[in-house]
Design a protein around this nucleic acid. Sequence first.
DNA 1: TAGATTGTTAATCGATTAACAATC
DNA 2: TAGATTGTTAATCGATTAACAATC
Lengths: 230, 230
Amino acid sequence: MHASSLPLPRPLLERLAAYHQIATQHGELGNVSIRSGHLAALLDIDPTLVRKDMAALGVVGRPKVGYPISAVLPRLDHILGLTDRKNAILIGCGDLGSALARYGGFSKYGLQISALFDADEAKTGRTIAGLTVQPMEKCRRYIEIFRIEMAILAAPAGCVQELADWLVARGVRAIWNFAPVHLKVPVGVVVRNENLALGLAQLLHEIKRTKTAPSLAEAPEPTGTRLESA
Amino acid sequence: MHASSLPLPRPLLERLAAYHQIATQHGELGNVSIRSGHLAALLDIDPTLVRKDMAALGVVGRPKVGYPISAVLPRLDHILGLTDRKNAILIGCGDLGSALARYGGFSKYGLQISALFDADEAKTGRTIAGLTVQPMEKCRRYIEIFRIEMAILAAPAGCVQELADWLVARGVRAIWNFAPVHLKVPVGVVVRNENLALGLAQLLHEIKRTKTAPSLAEAPEPTGTRLESA
DNA sequence: TAGATTGTTAATCGATTAACAATC
DNA sequence: TAGATTGTTAATCGATTAACAATC
């Protein structure tokens, strides 16, 4: 049971997740295999890179045909850890929290939201996606009893760091944070700060870039490292 | 009015957005400046890299003090395009759409959601975040009149590609897609596929990695390129 | 001053791309 | 067969890190 622990670089991980999404869609359209050129075109990357990734995944393709989707998806599932069933609690049941609780996409990837909590009494008792929103007082015991290791935070930005500290102290080892705050956690705890504004920034930047780059015969960059002339 | 059009690499863009978030928080705590070491520790990167980024941004720091937040934030605002005011429409007012409409974080970054649409008659007429949900029939005219260039899609996965095509044909140039589908758009149109499952995949992978890497004296990797032994 | 931190060049490292052979 | 596509090595490119000087 050897499990290598290469910290897959971010861009690679993003590609793999995108391959998964695209291959799934492609398969649902009735296709049996998928070409490197197809994936590459959709992701705007070099086909060679896709082939290299496939080789690294251990998937073998056939010239003129492509890679069998039935081989690609399980490999991606495995590498991405989507097969390991995982229970999580969700804290904060406002709009975003409710959306996440109802979001069908997670269970497909092995994530089961097993309980909902909210500090706001007005929200407790409500049922979302078949689960009753519980008061925070019950959270502690729930974590202990079910040995919860993962929490999804959709609570207000102001209290989310405190909440995270509290969860970590109670044994939670992975936090998926949707509040627009950068959480600090001790080593050994995994955190992902979702930061929607980051996505927005990327989009805005891209828009700006494509708009202000009409002429190909622009004055060549003075070979500095400045991101932009002041 | 020279605007260089360097396609800022993804990791850099992510760092910049994270700097923005952290520097903002740090400033709200009453600090006037921020150190490269502080940013580096939070992001788990090398301090040198932060300093290089700051230099590229054109921000000068002071030894023993750090970088003035009042200089850092405006530069980041500008590079990330957060200062350019931008109107967008939001299509799909389920839980996720509602959450996005109410999400306060966007307006702070220059994004104004100016209208909501939904194909479901049960949802039209409702008011979310001060805006009335309008039927899709009104969407076309709205785009034309207000020359909308950006759309946020929180519609069901099944119809979102068709929707995107339709929007692009009507002049929309940027799409922020929250449906778990990889959208294809013509060149010249900017799309960001938000893909929440990707975030999940990264988190799961990280969990898996840290869990299965207890011994440092593991058998050395056979110097292949395989992501994992089969 | 001493010490911490910034600034910057050079070295390293790794990821992407180019080229081309192999295969269906 | 011809043509398209995979597979793989070598070359390139760019990003990160190391080292150290400069500065408060």
